[in-house]
Write a protein that binds this DNA or RNA. Sequence first.
DNA 1: ACAAAAGTGTTCCCCTTACACCCATGT
DNA 2: ACATGGGTGTAAGGGGAACACTTTTGT
Lengths: 231, 231
Amino acid sequence: MLIPQDQQFDIWDPKITIPILALDIVIFTIYKWELCVLITKREEYWEQWYSLPGSIVSKGYTLDENFDEVLKRKTGITGVYKEQLRTFWDNIQRDPRGHVIALAYYALVKAKKLLAQVDFTQVDIVTIAQFRKLKVFYEHWEIVEYALKRLKWKLWYTDIVKELLPEKFRISEMQRIYEIILCKNIDKRNFQKKIFSLKIITDTGEKDHSTNRPAKLYKFENKRIKVIDML
Amino acid sequence: MLIPQDQQFDIWDPKITIPILALDIVIFTIYKWELCVLITKREEYWEQWYSLPGSIVSKGYTLDENFDEVLKRKTGITGVYKEQLRTFWDNIQRDPRGHVIALAYYALVKAKKLLAQVDFTQVDIVTIAQFRKLKVFYEHWEIVEYALKRLKWKLWYTDIVKELLPEKFRISEMQRIYEIILCKNIDKRNFQKKIFSLKIITDTGEKDHSTNRPAKLYKFENKRIKVIDML
DNA sequence: ACAAAAGTGTTCCCCTTACACCCATGT
DNA sequence: ACATGGGTGTAAGGGGAACACTTTTGT
């Protein structure tokens, strides 16, 4: 904003009659074949807890700009697939400083990118199981569970899985991501039949020799996320 | 809020660094066997256009409380089924007065209730077709189209149709609501087979004599909205 | 009698699921 | 040679879609 900081009003001032909008981000990644969430250590004046990366939304910037700025500042990551979830913390007394409404997003990041960009002095990557045992800020656990539900759903009805796979991948890698996120085993033949019938991936002609028998490498047809089913 | 109005800060003041959160509501109803939307005449200082009922969110009240207050004040309606959609107007220059982010909801109201409670000096009920031709405030048309998409989806995967039906109803009335909202004809036998297999409605034993051959009257098993499919 | 909506079964097809063996390579 | 993951087909079952005639009442 153009207003010098010393002239700005205190956003917590009771004379301001509008609530504060915050933005919280659930960053999912598949790391070492586990579904993980990125968390930060939140330095608040009254306590230090694990929390999702988030911030208060600034006037004069779109939500996308706010999202990019928070993500960059809190984690060092840029350019991710994201989706808006809904508002949370809809309780006026939740934050002792004042009335805050949180708008949650989830984002998908490939582990490789995450490892390259993330500043690990500020954040940690934990598995979903680990996250569930942590003492987290506010109802961040609720946001994560909701995000997970949406992620599972989207996985079935779109090809967002591409956001978690490298450019070229073995079909068994793809299947494994489905199994990890959906928490269930999938039949190899049925999975391939389904994926091939959707015509969302194509054989690159190349082979991956990292396993015993070389595996075909596939790639996604187009970059854009495609809704598979729906009305 | 407890702060007297003359001591409150002007929410549009550039010295306030947080954006304003607004709340807009798409109220759907089935009236004369048409899907309708409730609109208001918005009296803004620069123009008068049709608009969805909405308002700026007040600090110190939950979103639910804000929702109820706006709905009551703008339309006279109370106690409806509602669902949060997502944020809109994510463009800092959209409103000439300042940065506003709109949080949209949709609500379902039975026409009978609507006719009993609505103050028609303030609002109008228009069909979707009529709405699409109106000059509406901002991107309210976009909110309505999105709400409609969500409504169609929810209709298939939950039993929200109960929010648009009277306590006791003919199965053909129920089918007709599906046909109106989904914009397609449905086979009578297939529809009944599907609905009965879901076990969400029961025969009251009563008959409706308003048509030639009397029809069985059904009612929903429970009041709570039930997700039918999903993961 | 006739108009108007209610009520009622069966067939077909496709999609989903369950299931097991051989293959190509590295060690 | 053997261990490891890769690659492949078929049969059965369930759910959705298409389809037409009889019944009950009011007029």
